[in-house]
């Protein structure tokens, strides 16, 4: 379990370095092109995929998942956001082994708090999401603890699947979006999530909820994303910049 988190952190740091590099590159490009550029604040839709899932899958073969993210620029600095995804994730704790599968939707908005130089389209954003997940959990095995260990351990292999589980939550997103090539964005973000409600399996609990993640103490969860996305202009209408 710990090893998996370490991998995720290493990948995220490497990715951050990568983004910084591309950012500085962008600056020099911008100066050269500056004259020909008008403020490009046009009405647009941006579609992307979360790369963190496929990267994790290379290391942890059983972690399967895909998240598609979209956002639409409503007005200056405000974006309507919707993310859709599927996850199939095993969770192996010391005395319990489960596998969660399901799909989820997150709806909300992003606010860009970064003031760009003229002609640049980078973002430092904060956002909120309402998330909803429909999933199943398979209880593969568990052991019951006895501190004396006089008779030896008890181990069970029930292979029970709990179907029709649901959960909904609120999330706070922070992150960076950098336009590395024209209309191509790389972004990295962290998410803090709070479970608002869930349908629990009888005699068991929801340990991993697709889209939400591992349910921590106080029903909290943390997540992150590295997303590559492409901006598709919808209209030529130029949104007034301030």
């Amino acid at each position: 379990m710990n090893k998996r988190y370490i991998f995720k952190y290493i990948i995220s740091f490497v990715f951050l370095l990568f983004i910084n590099l591309s950012w500085s590159q962008k600056d020099s490009l911008q100066i050269a092109e500056k004259d020909s550029l008008k403020p490009r604040l046009i009405n647009s839709i941006r579609v992307g995929v979360d790369l963190s899932r496929p990267i994790t899958q290379l290391i942890q073969k059983q972690d399967i998942g895909l998240e598609v993210t979209t956002d639409i620029r409503l007005k200056n600095n405000w974006y309507l956001a919707a993310d859709f995804g599927y996850e199939s994730e095993p969770t192996e704790e010391d005395y319990i082994h489960i596998h969660s599968k399901g799909s989820y939707t997150k709806l909300g908005f992003n606010y860009n708090a970064y003031e760009n130089l003229k002609g640049m389209n980078n973002e430092v954003y904060v956002g909120m999401r309402y998330g909803f997940s429909s999933f199943q959990q398979e209880l593969i095995s568990y052991s019951a603890l006895d501190f004396d260990n006089y008779f030896g351990e008890y181990f069970a292999n029930p292979n029970t699947t709990f179907d029709g589980l649901t959960a909904h939550w609120a999330a706070l997103h922070f992150g960076l979006k950098v336009e590395t090539l024209p209309n191509l964005y790389l972004s990295v973000g962290v998410h803090f999530k709070k479970l608002l409600g869930d349908k629990k399996p009888e005699g068991f609990d929801n340990l991993y909820i697709p889209g939400f993640g591992s349910v921590l103490l106080n029903n909290n969860a943390v997540g992150f994303n590295y997303t590559i996305s492409y901006l598709i202009p919808l209209s030529k209408k130029i949104i007034k910049q301030n």
Partner: peptide, 30 residues
């Protein structure tokens, strides 16, 4: 907007610990 963000952060504050510790009291009784 800053105030709004602060309120939201307060809503999300809480520990990120995985779980409680297993003690004799909550496990298989003798």
């Amino acid at each position: 907007f800053t105030f709004f963000i602060v309120v939201i952060i307060l809503f999300f504050t809480g520990s990120c610990e995985v779980d409680d510790i297993c003690t004799k009291e909550i496990l298989t009784p003798k």
